[in-house]
Amino acid sequence: MEDFLFDLIDLVQSIADGLLFGTTYAMIGIGFTLIFGVMDKLNMSYAAAAIAGAYSSIAILAVVPAPAPVAFFIAAIAAGLFGYVIYLLCFRFIPLASPLATLMATVGMLLLIDEIIVHETDGMPQPYPALFDDVMVEFGPFGLRGDLMFVFAVSVVSMAVLLYLIYRTRLGIATRAVSQQPVAAQLCGIGLERTNAMTFVITGVLGGIAGAMIGAAVGVLSPLLSIPFTVKGLIVTVIGGLGSIPGAIIAGLLVGAFENTFQFLRGVTERDMYVMLLLFVFLFLRPGGIFSPPDGRD
C-alpha cells in the first residue's frame, strides 16, 4: 500500500513537471499554427530556427559574457531575425502557387540550420544558462523545480503578450484579416507582404523564447533537439487543430504531461512511442484536432 502511494506521488510529480515543460511545446505549436494561418503553408524550419536562436545567444555570450536573462533576450531577437530571413528565402522569393516548393524550401532550411549548428559546435552539446536551477519549492510530498517554474512563467507571459497582440491590436487584427480573406484584406489597404513578414518576425521571437526556455530547462543545447521539437511542434499543432492558438496551448500542455508520464511509467526510450500513439488516437477519433481552425478562408 505504501509503495503504491509513493508511486502515485511520483506519477503526479511527473505530470506536473510535464505540464511545466509543455509550455515550450505550446509556444512551438503556436508558431507553426500562426504561420499556417496567414500563409496557408507549413514552415518546417520553425523549431530549428527557434533552437538556432538559443544557439546564437551562446555564441554571443562566448564573446561578451552576460547573465542568463540577457542570453534569453538575445535568443528572442536572433530568432526573430531568422524568422524574417526564412520568410524572404522560403516564402517571398519562392512561388507560393506551388505548395511543394515552399514546403521543401523550409525542409531544406531545417537541414541547413542543423548542419550549421553541427559544423560550428562539432556536434557537441553546449551548456545553456538557467535561472533558479538551485531552487526547489516544496508542496508536502511534491517539489517543483525552480528552473521549470521559471520556464513556465516566462512561457505563460510570452503567450499572453502574443494573444494580446493577435486579438487586441490592429496589427493582430490585420493578421487575422489576411488569414480569413487575403484578397479582401489587400483591398482594405493591408499590405500582404508586410503583414506576412511581421507574422514571421513575431512568431520567430516567440520561437526564440521557446528555444531559450528549452535550453534552460534541459541545461544543454544539442543538434539532436531540432528534429524532435519539429515533430513535437507539428503533433501539438495537429492535436490542437491546425490554425487554432488556444488548441496549440492546450495540446502543448497535454503532450508535455503525457510524455513525462510515460517517461516515468515506461522509461525515456519508450515515451515518444506513446506520444505517437496519442497522435494516432486523435487522428482516428478527432482528425480536426481539439479545436477546428477558427478562421476559415474561402
Binding site: R176, A177, Q180, Q181, A184, P294, G296
Partner: peptide, 11 residues
C-alpha cells in the same frame, strides 16, 4: 465591395 460578400467573418 465584392459580388460575393468577403467580410472578415471571424472578426
Amino acid at each position: 465591395t465584392f459580388q460575393n460578400i468577403r467580410l472578415f467573418g471571424h472578426l
